[in-house]
């Protein structure tokens, strides 16, 4: 990842900059959105392997820090934000995840609980929530 950042820096014109957007190490989770409130239902299934999402996101953060500390890049600004994916049914959401977000999985029991919560709360949505960081990096 450090290599990728350094290579990206080498592809910049004078005055250019790098934008990095990646999830934080906070686990993505499942929520019920009632129209006014988000109610947390479950965490994603954690994958503790070195290639698991949290480990990759932590490595991305370390790579940015390493490049800044080494003087390869300057961190101009960064912002953390919440990224939502909304669906009107659990099946619709699971189908979407199976195609677009294959590493995101929830326990069967949590999925059952989500279905039940959604059935009880007419007009609500089911939501995957993720915390993300966006950074602007410039050559020093």
């Amino acid at each position: 990842m450090v290599h990728a950042l350094r290579r990206a820096r080498g592809l910049l014109d004078a005055g250019g900059f790098i934008v990095d957007v990646h999830p934080t190490t906070e686990q993505a989770h499942l929520e019920l959105f009632t129209g006014t409130d988000f109610i947390r239902l479950a965490e994603r299934i954690d994958d503790p392997s070195p290639t698991g999402p949290r480990q990759r996101h932590a490595a991305a953060e370390r790579a940015v820090s390493s490049c800044v500390e080494a003087g390869d890049l300057r961190q101009h600004r960064d912002v953390r934000f919440t990224f939502h994916t909304f669906a009107d049914s659990v099946d619709e959401l699971l189908e979407h995840l199976s195609v677009k977000w294959k590493t995101l999985k929830f326990e069967d029991e949590d999925v059952r609980r989500a279905r039940a919560s959604l059935a009880r709360a007419h007009g609500s949505s089911i939501v995957v929530t993720e915390r993300v960081i966006a950074s602007k990096l410039t050559p020093p």
């Binding site: 960064d78 912002v79 953390r80 919440t82 939502h84 994916t85 909304f86 966006a134 602007k136």
Partner: peptide, 26 residues
């Protein structure tokens, strides 16, 4: 209604906050 990804446009807003302007850029 289909799945809605970031319907609040939080990602775009974050990019504007870090001054990530793409106007006219390669």
């Amino acid at each position: 209604m289909p799945v809605r990804i970031d319907p609040e446009h939080n990602e775009q807003f974050a990019l504007s906050l870090i001054d990530a302007g793409f106007a006219g850029a390669r």
